[in-house]
Each structure stands twice: as C-alpha cells, then as structure tokens.
Computed example of a mutant assay.
Amino acid sequence: MTSLFNSSQEIVFVLHGLNVTQTNRHIYFVFILILYLFTIFMNLTLIFTVFLEEMLRDPMYLFLCNLCINGIIGASSFYPKILYDIFFDSHVVTYIGCLNQIFFIYLYIYCEFTNLTVMAYDRYVAICKPLHYHCIMTIRKVWTLIFLTWLFSLLEMTIGIVLTARLTLCSVDIDKFYCSALAVVKLACVDTSPNNHYRFIFTSYHLSQMILIFISYVNIIKASLRSQAGRRKFMQTCLPHVITLTNFGISLLFDVMYGSYGSNTSPLALRNIMSVEFLVVPPLINPIIYGMNLSQIRNRARKIFHRYINCSVSVKRTNKNSNK
C-alpha cells in the first residue's frame, strides 16, 4: 500500500467518535465545561491547601500534590479540544495538534503510574518502618523522586512520539473523538514493529510497577493487622491510594482492551465512555477521595476558605465605610 500523503504537514485527521446533534450541542458543551472547571478547581484546591499550610509539607502530601498537578495535565489534554469541537462543530485535528494531544495524554498516563508507585513506596516505609520514616523519606529524597517521576515519563513519551511521528500514513480517519497513539499507528502503511516493541517494553515496565505496588501492599496489610493504630493509619492514608490506583488501572485497561480488540459495531456511547474514562474520572475523584479521607487536608482547606471569606467580608466593609 502506498502513502496518501507527501508530508506530515498536509495531514488533517478526521475524528469520528463525536456525534452530537445541533439540538444537544450546547447542553453537552455546558455540562463538559462545568465538569472540566470543577476538576481543575478540586485539584487546585488541594494543591494550594498543601503549599499554603506548613503542617502539610510531609512527603505524602507532596506526592499527592504531584498527583493533582498530573491530573490537571490529563484533564487539560482532553477537555479543551472536545469543548472546541462541540462548540464549533469541528471533527478534525491537524497532524501537529494530534501529536501534541498524544504527548500530553500519554505523559499523564506514564506519570500517573510512576507517581502511584512512588506513593506506594512512601506508604510502605510509613507503616512498615515508622521509626525510620523521616530518616528514609527526607525532603531531598522526596523532591528527587518527584523529579525522576517526571524525567522518566518525559523520556518515555518522547521516545513514543518520535516512533509515532516517523510513520507514513495511508488514512486520516480516527475512530475516536481525540487522538491516541494506537489509533495513529493503525493508520500506518509501513512496518510498525518498532512501535509494537516500544509498547511491549514499556507495558512490561509499568506492569513491573504494579507488581512492586502489590508487594508493598502485601507487607503494608501484614503490618497494619498487628495493631489498631496500624489499621487506622491504613484506612486513612492507604485506602485512598488503593481506590485511586484501582480506578485508574481499570479505566486504562478498558481503553487499551477496546483499542486493541474492540468492535466498531458496539454502541458509540459505550465506546466513547470506555475510551475517556481514564481521562475524566481519576483527575476528578482523586482530590475528592483524598480530601474526604485525610482529615488534615479537609480541615486545612476549610480554614483557608473561611479565612478567604472573612477577608472578603472585611474588605467589603472597609470599602463601604470609606464610601460613607
């Protein structure tokens, strides 16, 4: 099969996943916009709560901030494009725009896995070696782990983008309403063995991370069962992590399995839900889960909001008195 294109600059992909009628278009736009703004608000609230309160500068909260920052990246790699497509009734994306979306979506995926692995290690040290926790998890080590999380994720994604960009394409039809690396690779009319090898290697790498998390939690559960305090600590700090990891893993598994083995004859709504769940649900519920379960964050966030409201009231009273 020969290429349909002379150069990548000429390629404009057609996205077939979005099927919104003119009647419902504005309803969908408003709903998705509210969902996006609420996701950003919840993540920023948790981030600012941690950084504004010195009592929340522990390693666990810094890793949680990193998780929320990554959640904002994941949400922002998806929502603005679909909002634009719905509002302007657009179903296309340029080649460069598609690669950019792929870069940030997969950066979010890789960083999420690595950050959850680091958080599992942090909980392992906190519960299994509590007396040595602050000696092992120093602030310098925490920032080093956060830096390495982003560095490895960026390197992993850069390799993936280079391998995807080298492909010669024979079609422009993507059966999704956003760009994914697997969807673009399926359009290639050249040998995609390097892409398949890349996917196998890094899938194995992330599966090894899952194994490390599993081993960590086997030891954490054993240590937690020895005392009432250990069980309480597990419920407060480890349970949110388990829920976050399970939700992200299942959501991503749905997308991977459908992208590899799914049928185009299945209902469009089901296909869309399965393909975007990992981009919508984890960034939304992560700050909610941690905010509800960690009393320190919940109480500090409440104090910050009360302080802001009282400050706003004081400013209004001052302005009112000065006008008099």
Rank of each mutant, 00 (worst) to 15 (best):
I159E: 11
L4N: 02
A269F: 04
V142N: 11
M60Y: 05
Q236V: 15
E156T: 11
T144V: 13
R298G: 11
Q209P: 05
P130M: 02
S314G: 09
V184C: 07
V172H: 14
V218A: 09
A120E: 05
R166A: 09
A181H: 04
L99H: 08
Y108D: 13
H132G: 08
S171G: 14
I250S: 04
S3L: 01
V315R: 13
Y124S: 06
I139N: 15
A120F: 05
I285M: 08
I161V: 15
S3A: 06
D173E: 15
R123I: 06
M137N: 07
V118Y: 11
H134V: 07
Q236Y: 10
V190W: 05
N66P: 03
L148Y: 13
N196G: 11
S77I: 00
K186D: 09
Q9L: 10
F5D: 02
G17A: 06
L116Y: 00
K129R: 15
C68W: 00
H26M: 14
L37Y: 01
V20F: 09
L245R: 06
M157V: 15
I86D: 00
G291E: 03
A223N: 00
L182C: 10
K222V: 01
Y261K: 00
H197L: 13
I32Q: 10
M257F: 14
S224A: 13
D85E: 10
I211W: 05
Y61F: 13
K303L: 09
I69T: 04
R25W: 11
L67G: 03
